[in-house]
Design a protein around this nucleic acid. Structure first.
Lengths: 104, 104
DNA sequence: CTCTCACATCAGCGGGTGGTGATACCACCC
DNA sequence: GGGTGGTATCACCACCCGCTGATGTGAGAG
């Protein structure tokens, strides 16, 4: 199968603050104010990172009056987990069967 | 459970060339020469990235005469896949149960 | 021994990226 | 209406990081 993993999504999750946001949102749907309180980051900074997460399709927004709730999209994370699992499985059979290309 | 995912490992895999290396190594154990041929990157560049992958514990080296074989460590990738799966599961229950913190 | 090849290391340059302050926007309350 | 608080956008700067060329090392081949 070997569906190649897309780098951009990994890059998005590779930032410490963004990963922290994702982990917070996995436990609870929150709005920006909560995230500011939880992370201690500036509102502007947070909003920038949320924009990145939004454009990557990792989170969805849900306006609620003046507030904006952010929720994680489980399928995206799940899909990524599946791709890594696939990669690990492929690597495991490669290592177990000592499949290697001969020295040129 | 919620074992927090480690950012550094994700950053390591977030580089396009490094991810390409990892995907190649998942299918076949290769030495640097093969990787140069497969990726088209310069030897120096590749060696730098392999150093990063090595220090992150993603790959292992196995010297074979003048050559150096690189093999992927399936457990590392598998562990990462598990963490993402855990994150996805947590996110799914959060979304399904509409668990959200009230507006302040 | 010498030459060649595989690979690693180092120093330097340039572009991408995260953090910040100023500002605009929008919904609510008075 | 005006004011206030929550959020998004923009422009700018500084710094990190990846690419490169030069060079070092070490094992085989001749």
């Amino acid at each position: 199968m070997m569906t190649s993993v897309d780098t951009d999504l990994i890059r998005v999750l590779g930032d410490p603050l963004r990963l922290q946001i994702v982990q917070l949102l996995a436990k609870e749907t929150l709005c920006t104010t909560h995230l500011v309180a939880e992370t201690g980051a500036r509102q502007t900074n947070l909003s920038n990172h949320l924009k990145v997460l939004r454009e990557a399709g990792v989170v969805e927004t849900e306006p609620c009056g003046r507030f904006t709730y952010y929720k994680l999209r489980p399928d995206v994370i799940d899909h990524l987990a599946g791709q890594f699992a696939e990669l690990a499985a492929s690597a495991r059979t490669t290592v177990d069967s000592a499949r290697k290309r001969p020295c040129p």
